[in-house]
């Protein structure tokens, strides 16, 4: 948190010093983007609140916690692969999962498969790259996500 505040202050000061007009344009652009995602973000936070209410913490940590083992990792990879959640929503969600006791490995697998594997967009991808290359990229990315998660687990 502090690091973000410090980074924001430093960047803002440097930018303002270098070019006042550009800085104001940047602030405006950021503000517009914020307003654009706000409804989606509020909706997700609301859905997560309901989810946490309906599903007790013990169940979440049981399936996805540090003792969930291979099951949790595979579940995270599968959920990540079939979801289309933008990063600005996925990271807050990941933070919430961590605070509920979900392991860093599982969160990393979920985030990475979410970003790299696109099951729903596969038909589109095939149109661009052909069947073989598109399927291969997704399969490799699926296992890549699991490898990344396992490596993360070594450090947390």
């Amino acid at each position: 948190m502090q690091i973000l505040i410090i980074a924001a202050i430093i960047c803002l000061a440097l930018s303002f010093f270098a070019d006042r007009g550009k800085t104001i344009a940047g602030i405006k652009r950021g503000g517009v983007m914020l307003l654009r995602i706000l409804p989606a973000l509020l909706l997700v936070v609301f859905l997560v609140s309901i989810f946490i209410y309906l599903v007790p913490e013990k169940v979440i940590t049981g399936y996805l916690g540090s003792n969930s083992g291979a099951m949790g990792i595979v579940a995270a990879a599968l959920i990540g692969s079939v979801s289309l959640i933008p990063g600005f929503v996925a990271f807050p969600l990941a933070g919430i999962l961590i605070s509920k006791g979900v392991s860093y490995t599982v969160v990393a697998v979920f985030i990475t498969s979410l970003m790299m594997v696109g099951t729903l967009t596969l038909p589109l991808e095939i149109k661009y790259f052909g069947r073989k290359a598109a399927i291969m990229r997704n399969v490799l990315s699926f296992f890549g996500a699991i490898i990344i998660g396992l490596l993360m687990g070594v450090f947390f």
Binding site: M1, L4, I5, A7, A8, C11, L12, S15, K22, T23, A25, G26, I27, K28, R29, G30, G31, M33, L34, L41, L42, V45, V48, S49, F88, P92, G95, I96
Partner: peptide
């Protein structure tokens, strides 16, 4: 509770994103 944890980050993040986009 969740909103309070999230909402404070957002303006800072989008400030950085906006500046990055311009520069």
């Amino acid at each position: 509770l969740l909103l309070r944890e999230t909402i404070f980050f957002l303006p800072l993040m989008f400030l950085l994103i906006g500046l990055f986009d311009v520069w």
